[in-house]
Structure formats: C-alpha cells, structure tokens
C-alpha cells in the first residue's frame, strides 16, 4: 500500500526536480525578511521543544514526524 502511495510521489518529485533548474522563485530573496524572523521558525527553541516532545512521547501511543530524532525511553 505504501509502495502505491510513494511511487507516484517519487515520479512527480523527479519530474519537478528535472524542471527545477528553469523554475523562477516567486518569492525573491529580498522579499524574505518576514520569513527569516525567528518567530517564523518551526523550531525557535530546540532545547525546549525536544523536551516537550519527550514529555508527550512518554505519555502517548503516537510517535514520529515531530521533528525530533531522539532515543531513550523514560516511559513511566
């Protein structure tokens, strides 16, 4: 099932990538001041967010896709 989902994504990705060299960026580098502001970061305080993700992971069945990569358990 995963194969069926991933294959089209892979194909589309390669096509976009091959065309990528001719793609013009629609947000110019000088228009990215707002995006560069730390308040727009997905992980402004990594030490704090990795701690909070650990707190959730130790108490919840779900895991992954939270930006962390840690190990450990602390599953009490």
């Amino acid at each position: 099932m995963l194969k069926a989902t991933l294959l089209p994504i892979l194909a589309i990705g390669i096509v976009i990538m091959l065309n990528g060299c001719t793609l013009k960026p629609w947000v110019k580098p000088y228009e990215r001041a707002n995006l560069a502001d730390p308040i727009m970061s997905f992980d402004r305080n990594p030490i704090s967010s990795s701690y909070l993700n650990h707190v959730y992971e130790a108490r919840e069945g779900a895991r992954g896709a939270d930006g962390g990569q840690g190990g450990g358990c602390g599953c009490n």
Binding site: L2, M40, S41, F42, A62, R63, G64, A65, D66
Partner: peptide
C-alpha cells in the same frame, strides 16, 4: 508505525 505531519507558519 506511520506518522505524517503538516505544519504552517
């Protein structure tokens, strides 16, 4: 397990 996440700022 599979996890997929979409975020936006």
């Amino acid at each position: 397990s599979h996890a997929i996440a979409l975020s936006a700022n």
